[in-house]
């Protein structure tokens, strides 16, 4: 049962398939969480202005603004939001840039294990 007090997770991914997979796994792990979706960075930033989520799962490779840049902007205005970048591209340089901005990493492919790990990162 979710209420407006329940934690809100915003899933940002240009792939509908990926959003569905993440949403399904999270709903299973944390049935009380509310889940919102955005298909690109601009929509995500607009959604955050309307209601700031507790957590953001952010794809990196998206048309338009990259997830990395969007994550930086979110951290600037809403430092309390916990963000995990969801990507197969975990290079040291990217990881360091993200970690210095206070952003976590969750490895793609999306699996129950990788999403469980992301949920743990959010709740740390």
């Amino acid at each position: 049962m979710t209420t407006t007090d329940s934690p809100l997770l915003l899933i940002v991914d240009d792939s509908k398939m990926s959003r569905m997979m993440i949403s399904r796994i999270v709903a299973n792990l944390r049935p009380d969480w509310r889940i919102a979706e955005a298909a690109n960075s601009a929509d995500a930033l607009a959604a955050i202005e309307r209601e700031a989520p507790h957590y953001v799962s952010m794809d990196v490779n998206m048309p338009g603004m990259s997830g990395l840049e969007a994550a930086g902007r979110i951290r600037l205005h809403n430092p309390e939001i916990k963000i995990a970048l969801c990507t197969a591209n975990i290079q040291d340089a990217v990881r360091q840039a993200a970690e210095s901005a206070g952003v976590k990493f969750a490895a793609k492919p999306i699996t129950p294990d990788s999403i469980a790990r992301m949920v743990e990162l959010f709740e740390e």
Binding site: S15, K16, M17, S18, V60, N61, T87, A88, N89, I90, Q91, K108, P109
Partner: peptide
Amino acid sequence: LDALGELFNLGVGRAAN
């Protein structure tokens, strides 16, 4: 198309690494 695009993105992401 979405699934294929995601799978190739996954591969390209690994390659970038």
